[in-house]
Design a protein around this nucleic acid. Sequence first.
DNA 1: ACAATGTACTTAGTAATACAAGGTATATTA
DNA 2: TAATATACCTTGTATTACTAAGTACATTGT
Lengths: 132, 132
Amino acid sequence: MRELADVGATDAKGIAEMKVIMNDKYERQMKKGVLDMLVLRLLKSEAKYGYQIIQEMREKSEEIFLLKDGTLYPILYRLEDDGLVVSKWSEAVGKQVPRKYYEITREGKRTLDEIEDVWKRISDGVVRIMED
Amino acid sequence: MRELADVGATDAKGIAEMKVIMNDKYERQMKKGVLDMLVLRLLKSEAKYGYQIIQEMREKSEEIFLLKDGTLYPILYRLEDDGLVVSKWSEAVGKQVPRKYYEITREGKRTLDEIEDVWKRISDGVVRIMED
DNA sequence: ACAATGTACTTAGTAATACAAGGTATATTA
DNA sequence: TAATATACCTTGTATTACTAAGTACATTGT
């Protein structure tokens, strides 16, 4: 992380960069908790593998959710530990690189419904405070 | 606080409680990042003190954002460190307990606008993925 | 008179998680 | 043969909401 102290002369570029960093900080924090919901949502229709989830997330959100793989996989492992998804490796199809498919469980679907409610409550609350 | 380990037989009550804990977990994470925005928003119209912010947050959000004071004050200190708000103690008025008023700065207003944009982008992205 | 509750601010510690940055391995394209 | 894309894995860091404790004074109840 960049230090404020070593910016030297505070030029326009430095300020613009600082603003980007600040926005990144908030963007990062605002995503917390939502990503689990989005991953479960994408798995609701059919089992998918990691890279596929990343691409669909990017496309469906229209370039807003650009997940790194290092972000997604820990989420999938966590969901699996919690029993919300199960995984199985694809059997080798020709020279296809093996893929690990994740499938949502019944418990996962129920939890998804609940998390959706939480999201709605919170975003409603935000709207009420922000509007005036 | 009740421990999961001492629930004994996993009865309906135990499961219900687990679900509450899970939802709490997601609710907690989803709030990350938005609280700064909401606090700044409440300070936009006029300077306010801690307890006042907690109450307005509760009322305006219709009981959705129920902040503990131990949650709010660190947020205020952080905002002050970042130069987004400034504080000053109220001069003694009768036997009124002294209050520390927080006022949003010009920089704070600019940041608030930016954070609002981030929030809109993210919640739009969520809606796009969740609807189908 | 004393306890309980409410107001008002402070602080230390914990749990959770998005991301960066590294890694492995294979397939395709230039 | 070098680069790029696919596909998965792992460690470490920064941030932050919350719990739980504390201090201090005012008000209300019994």
